[in-house]
Write a protein that binds this DNA or RNA. Structure first.
Lengths: 206, 206
DNA sequence: TCACATCCATACACTCATGAATGTAAAAAG
DNA sequence: CTTTTTACATTCATGAGTGTATGGATGTGA
């Protein structure tokens, strides 16, 4: 076959990653062959082995396409008004996180990571999830600790406990939604959840 | 090799299932071969193909060893004092559920189902999780609905929302714990979570 | 005790996926 | 315009895993 232009080559690379996303999500990572990915992108395995060393390398590349925003999701927690209105900051961070998760690519890749792949060479999805969960928990502990010092938290509640409560809820919502995203809108139901929980956790000032 | 007695045959069957549990949990379902399972049990693949038709059949048999109590976990929700003290009933159901989950076999099999296997022939772990989640949610909706009619629930809270809140928390806790059960005791942290949440959701009667 | 069924090991055939090797036409570099 | 490199396709060798067929020794029922 003829050589393609640089732009075309980059396009086929993206097409291969797109195809990998779709088929990984559909049939699971272990059960999909590089042949299937290539065919679904209108290519052959030659193209795959040109752009990636092997399946693990392709998988990593697929993750890399969302890794940056993946981090954003956590960095977003480093908001401005942490010091003054931590509960409001949590509300906003969740809002933006849900919005981001609704983008197809984010949703797909996270669903693959959590529900459609097992341990995989050097890549261990479970440890990635662990890091994610712990970082989120740590941030929430900071928030609620700040809220406690500002007197915005119920006095009969440890900040750490409040953080674990919210983190578990978010984690559960996350898993349940990724399992079947057509069941409900994570943005809508998530904000309902977060708001009512924050209302329950906040010191009643009305 | 010589024929074994009936009891010995049953023992090797159990040994094969034990081996499968361990290796599935360690390396994931897709990456483990029947050869590895057989060797780990001190047998050959001949034994595996005698007791099970194929890998999927073995997997199903592994699930069957805990399916009955798996159902118990849900049936347990059908408690007596639903009509009089629903919140207390939730407390007790969670208590017993956590205790059950701490048994190694339950923990292992659930961890495999949720974190160490992908879609798999006719077996779809995700739909199983979906059913589990929906049944739990339905039961909780009943409970909180009952609590609301009894005036034991905060009046500014929909029963269904309360149920979703608790269900998400439990789901998140479940996933997080199964990912790394040495991080914390699900019984201890779970009961902390449930109790504080129930306290927050209950109508303040003090 | 004798025939038979059972429990498991061994051997074999087959598929499928991988990865490397090779081919090749066109783009890019000079 | 020539040379080199790129971006794939095609082919081939290999191995891993599966499923089946067969063998064989021993419990088991009569």
């Amino acid at each position: 076959m003829a050589r393609r232009t640089k732009a075309e080559a980059a396009a086929t690379r993206e097409a291969l990653l797109d195809a990998a996303e779709e088929i990984f999500l559909e049939r699971g990572v272990a059960r999909t062959s590089l042949e299937q990915i290539a065919r679904h992108a209108g290519m052959t395995r030659g193209a795959v082995y040109w752009h990636f060393r092997n399946k693990a390398d392709l998988f990593r590349a697929m993750l890399d396409r969302v890794r940056m925003p993946f981090q954003e999701l956590i960095d977003e927690i480093g908001d401005p008004n942490l010091a003054t209105a931590p509960l409001e900051a949590i509300h906003q961070a969740c809002q933006r996180g849900f919005t981001r998760l609704e983008q197809p690519r984010y949703r797909r890749v996270h669903a693959i990571l959590i529900h459609h792949c097992e341990v995989f060479g050097e890549i261990d999805p479970l440890s990635m999830q662990n890091e994610m969960a712990e970082e989120a928990l740590g941030a929430l502990v900071d928030y609620f600790g700040c809220a406690a010092r500002l007197g915005q938290l119920r006095t009969d509640l440890q900040p750490e406990l409040a953080a674990r409560l919210l983190q578990s809820s978010l984690s559960g919502l996350f898993h349940d939604w990724l399992r079947n995203h057509e069941q409900f809108s994570i943005h809508q139901r998530g904000m309902e959840l977060v708001d009512t929980l924050l209302k329950l956790l906040a010191r009643e000032s009305g």
